[in-house]
Computed example of a mutant assay.
Amino acid sequence: MRALVVGAGIGGLAAAGALAQNGWETTVLEQAPAPRTTGYMIDFFGPGFAAAESLGAIAHLQRHGEMYSRARYVDQTGRTRAKFAMESFLNAAHGKFFSILRPDIETGLREWVGDSVGIVQGARVVSVDPGRCPGTDGPGVPARAVVADGRDFEADLLIGADGIHSTVRGAMPAIPGTRVLRHLGLHVFGYVFYDPELAANLGREVVLSDSLVRQATLYALSDGRVTFFGVVECHDPDPAPDTREELFTKFRGLGSDVDRALDQRPAEIFEDVVAQAVVPAWSAGRCVLLGDAAFAVSLLAGQGASLAIAGAKVLADALGSGNDIPAALAGYEASWRPLVEQQQEAGRRNARFFVPSGRRALLLRRWSLHLMNLAPVNAVIARRVFGASVVGKGHPGP
């Protein structure tokens, strides 16, 4: 059986590798000319950790991971307003927790898949035909994808893992275009820069701004680099370039370390709206959606990468060797959608936890963070903020 995966991101690579383990001949089409290097720091835990263990990929991810001792919220003068030990998250996740840059997850997954799948870089998909499985409507028709340079790919199964702005999703029947996106009123920026002095000052602490309507976060990496992640209130789902620059300047004044990070912004950065994908059906014909294309939970939900990897395993397990594709795709959605919807609800709560809009919400966040340091209540707070899947043992499969 042949599978075609559109998108060499986290979900796409995980699905390709999992299908290859089941004996599928798998090709991944990626529009970027080379592996991406821009991104932001992710805390990796939950069902994706369990899935990566089962797939044999976890060691490749942990090799690129970081561990931090605590998180500290500071005001513009550097005064600590709240802090909590990262041990709280380790306890809530049963020790299965680490931090990792988003592009490093993709690097680890590429190391894991090795030569078992073919990855075609610089292949921008311009049209998709979801094909048809054999049945009462007639014989089966392969799924097809055509890329910008005219190359045509056919497969028994096409997986759209091309992100929240998915081209594949837009080509599927009965999906109402951009109306599937639920905008959460925020915009994000992320990048990495080299500053050994700042990295040494930060140490193993995650430093976050204790601020209204925007938040800046700094992580030091082990090699002298620092990663900046900024979230700012923005109610325009597609801001113009000038507006985006104006949004970026709102991080000024959150502290000397943040200003120092802003001064070192590289030419290429990650930036996007904070939104969720609410898709009425994840499959049509021989085509199925995965990861953010199907169920983006938002960048602030804390589980996007985890759900992409776990969802890829659920899909691959349902497909097996590919004997009954329609039943497999229906089973994948039926088993995975409830957990995704729970996590999306947690992500909507999370948005205002990260970016409080008023003084009362800011004080409530400080109080919640103080409680995270108390062993009897940290799991309860983790459930409330990140969803029940965080503190459980992870989703074992379909």
Rank of each mutant, 00 (worst) to 15 (best):
C287T: 13
F354D: 06
G48Y: 00
V168R: 02
V141G: 08
Y40C: 00
V5H: 05
R383E: 08
P398Q: 12
E233I: 13
G230N: 11
V213Q: 15
F153V: 12
A15S: 11
S357I: 10
L19W: 05
A20G: 10
R36V: 04
D242N: 14
G255I: 01
D195N: 09
L208T: 13
D238M: 12
F251V: 14
M41C: 04
W282H: 02
F229L: 13
V180T: 14
R252K: 11
V232H: 05
V278E: 10
Q31F: 11
D104N: 09
S389K: 04
R169Y: 08
D324W: 08
A16F: 11
A318L: 08
I159L: 06
L109W: 07
R244M: 10
V128R: 01
F295K: 04
Q276A: 08
G46K: 00
G253R: 13
G311R: 01
V126L: 05
N350D: 15
S127H: 11
S69K: 11
E106I: 03
G150N: 10
A281G: 13
G118Y: 10
A50M: 09
Q62G: 05
H187C: 13
T27S: 07
I10Y: 00
R132S: 11
A330R: 07
A379Q: 15
P239W: 12
K83W: 13
V258G: 01
D292Q: 04
T217G: 05
V192R: 09
S166M: 04
A379G: 15
G331T: 10
H395P: 03
G12A: 03
L363W: 10
K96E: 05
A301L: 04
P241S: 14
E245C: 12
D43C: 01
S127L: 12
P176K: 13
L90A: 15
L300Q: 02
A220P: 08
W112A: 06
V297F: 01
G48R: 00
D238E: 14
A51E: 00
P338A: 09
D156F: 02
A3T: 02
A327Y: 07
A361Y: 03
V192D: 09
N91F: 10
L218R: 02
G322A: 10
Q62M: 03
W282Q: 05
D272Y: 04
L369D: 08
R151Q: 14
V288H: 09
T249V: 15
R359N: 13
F45T: 00
P237A: 14
